[in-house]
Simulated scan of single mutants.
Amino acid sequence: MTVLLPRADGTLHRHEPCPAPRRPLPGPPPASRAVLAAAHVVADPLADTAPGGPAAIDWDATLAFRRHLWEHGLGVAEAMDTAQRGMGLDWPGAAELIRRSAAEARAAGGTIVCGAGTDQLTGAATLAEVRAAYEEQLALVESAGARPVLMASRALAAAARSPEHYLDVYGGLLRQASEPVILHWLGPVFDPALEGYWGSGDLDTATDTFLQVVGAHPDKVDGVKVSLLDAGREIALRRRLPRGVRCYTGDDLHYPELIAGDQAGFSHALLGAFDPLGPLAAEAVRSLDSGDTAGFRERLDPTVALSRHLFRPPTRFYKTGVVFLAWLAGHQSHFTMVGGLQSARSLPHLARAYELADGLGLFPDPALAERRLSLLLDIHGVPR
């Protein structure tokens, strides 16, 4: 049996679904690397919502997906950009997500980190207002019992006029943090509003400021998450970190080589790509626990084509492909997203995502994935 798929050039071609999916077994967290999947949220498809309104979340399905990740040994990075922070998920929804997921993590014995930002601010803000917004979210994450990830702030990018403003805001937050945090440098490819973050459009200068923040408070920084999609720059930054401060790769295009590392070190992982790839990724990284780098690369290298497709420009819309694959894999009953973001990618883009994921054997039930894809193709008038 074959399915007719549309290409980007408007033509159609036949694809034969994978008859034998991969079935990675549940397992413990990898010992040699910290591996966190930035997880998506499942929208409530029956909610009567409107663009720009409060996010309506299917809590049962959302939390079930997190249990799926923990079962396979991954940690969860909660309320990050994969969860549509600033792209459909508002701060009240994110706050409730953090509280519920942190409680679920305690019950499941799972690892969780949670994003703290400034997205409760609307319109122009002063530096004092930015810091107060960060403090509010930092306090909520800590009170929930999770490790905070200090996310890059659109409001800070708009208000700051020099590197010293970043040093002052982040320095104040790190001094008052109860436990070490993760600092997140999200590049403008993910969010154009973050252009010139750390006070400079020159990445070398920005890196110096970023490392100055870390170096001034190494006891308050568990690690840094670097999402610049530049492997060489991440490696250079990684080698300059103070001893004991981790580098978490956020590079969804080059993650196998960055996690494998070199003679001078390696990156841990905090990746949106590991939402759809979670069980396979955890299995691959466990190979590194026994020094089997070849086995790790053999498992993970073939996934890069899918990840690069999901994260193709405009990169910030990768969440649509992630949720689409979760629907096909049976993790949710519908293809609906908060903010209506299910419309952000074209049918040919989604069809190619299906084809690549199916080729990797990612769908536990290939027949279910094919049926659901066929429903979408029917709606778009694609012939059988």
Rank of each mutant, 00 (worst) to 15 (best):
A8D: 15
L12D: 09
H15V: 12
P21A: 06
S32A: 10
A39E: 03
A39W: 02
D44W: 06
D48V: 05
T49P: 03
G52A: 09
A56L: 05
I57W: 01
D58N: 08
T62H: 01
R66K: 15
R66T: 10
R67L: 06
L69N: 01
A79D: 01
M80C: 09
R85I: 14
M87E: 12
G88I: 01
G88N: 01
A105W: 00
G109F: 12
G110T: 01
I112W: 01
V113N: 00
T126H: 15
L127H: 08
E136L: 14
E136F: 15
L138W: 08
A139K: 13
E142M: 12
P148H: 09
A152L: 08
P163Q: 07
L167A: 05
G172W: 12
R175S: 14
R175W: 10
Q176E: 13
I182M: 02
L183N: 01
H184S: 07
H184A: 09
W185P: 00
D191G: 01
D202Q: 06
A206M: 11
A206I: 07
D208L: 07
G215C: 14
V221G: 00
L229S: 04
L237C: 05
R240M: 08
R240N: 07
G250H: 02
D251Y: 02
D252H: 04
G265M: 10
L270T: 03
D275L: 14
P276S: 12
A284T: 08
S290N: 15
S290G: 15
A294T: 14
A294G: 14
R299I: 13
R299W: 07
P302G: 07
S307V: 11
F311T: 06
L328A: 06
A329C: 13
S333I: 12
S333G: 14
V338K: 00
G340K: 09
H349F: 15
A357S: 12
G361H: 03
D365S: 12
D365R: 12
L368M: 14
H380M: 13
G381Q: 12
